[in-house]
């Protein structure tokens, strides 16, 4: 097998022969092929974004191309009945938008303070034993499919928590809001904890060195120093709540209402989209089909905008300490 000049072992008498060198051209060619493949992979994500934007613009235009539908009434109208009536219908987005905002507000009232306090506790106070329970709990909570939380809202939160408090309908904004809040808590907690942990040790030492208590150090030094990170966590949570679908589809009901009453049903933008799909009456070309895209375009605009701001704020705080 080996050439005659090569001794069989690499022992002390071994003379290193000149092995035939592989052409480096091949390695370079392989690299070029792989790089173009990798660029192809990276383009998939760009393509996804372009695809989403193109699709939403093109198909929403199909909605507004209709004879008696215009953008202004869509953005200001307070009645929505697309997909319910065949002939004449109302297409003002506010009932859906207010449903989304109502539920998001309830979710944030719950998730922001709870998530932040949990983050503070985890980063500043928690002894190892508590952390060992709390961290996995939050991870499990974050991994629970949202449809499960929707089920929880309908079957537990409404009958057991809300029913004793007043006249809550079977499907209501509050239960959905609480469930959305529950799924936002781990998100806020982990992002805010990252931000708090990114605060340099020296700042903590400085505050303790001046004789501050833990509370004073936390609230007066660390939280302000991590503020941009915390704000970004809040923004990402808001975007998540606005885009949350299965919880509201199950727990918030399917009637679009333009009220401030958190006890009644309130269909959200995402809820509307799911309910329309579920009815399987979506046929390309009909207003019902196009309305999905118009609603989705607005939903995308809002969530993408908030996420973008959140990401930029996050990048800035990362730069501050790196």
């Amino acid at each position: 097998m080996s050439s005659s000049s090569v001794s069989e072992t690499g022992g002390p008498n071994f003379v290193r022969p000149n092995f035939p060198v592989k052409s480096s051209a091949r390695s370079h060619r392989n690299q070029a092929i792989m790089v173009s493949l990798l660029i192809g992979c990276a383009l998939v994500t760009l393509g996804t974004t372009v695809g989403i934007i193109y699709m939403l613009i093109k198909e929403s235009m199909g909605f507004f191309a209709g004879d008696d539908i215009n953008l202004w009434e869509f953005l200001t109208g307070t009645k929505w009945s697309v997909g319910r009536t065949q002939g004449k219908f109302d297409y003002g987005i506010w009932p859906l938008l207010s449903g989304t905002l109502r539920i998001t507000a309830i979710a944030m009232i719950l998730a922001l303070p709870l998530g932040l306090v949990t983050a503070i506790y985890l980063s500043e106070y928690a002894p190892k034993s508590v952390r060992a329970i709390l961290k996995p709990t939050l991870e499990i909570l974050a991994g629970i499919p949202t449809v499960v939380l929707g089920f929880f809202a309908v079957k537990f939160i409404t009958p057991n928590l809300l029913a004793p408090l007043g006249e809550f309908k079977t499907f209501n904004a509050t239960a959905a809001g609480i469930a959305v809040g529950i799924l936002c808590i781990p998100l806020v907690a982990s992002l805010a904890e990252d931000a708090l942990r990114a605060v340099p040790r020296t700042l903590r030492e400085g505050a303790y060195g001046l004789g501050s208590t833990k509370l004073e150090t936390t609230l007066k030094v660390i939280v302000p120093a991590a503020l941009s990170g915390i704000i970004s966590a809040f923004l990402l949570a808001v975007a998540r709540a606005i885009g949350e679908t299965m919880v509201v589809a199950l727990a918030a009901g399917s009637s679009p209402t333009f009220t401030m009453d958190p006890r009644g049903p309130s269909q959200t933008m995402t809820g509307f989209i799911v309910h329309t799909f579920q009815s399987e009456s979506v046929v390309p070309g009909t207003p019902g089909y196009y309305s999905i895209y118009a609603v989705a375009a607005l939903l995308f605009l809002i969530t993408f905008g908030i996420t973008l701001i959140g990401q930029i704020v996050r990048m800035r705080y990362r730069e501050e300490y790196n």
Binding site: T49, G243, I273, I292, A296, L299, T303, T307
Partner: peptide, 18 residues
């Protein structure tokens, strides 16, 4: 890179429509 972190925040129902 920015696009990817943003895509992570797009509601999954929008992907459904896509």
């Amino acid at each position: 890179q920015l696009n990817i972190s943003n895509l992570a925040g797009v509601p999954s129902i929008v992907y459904g429509i896509l």
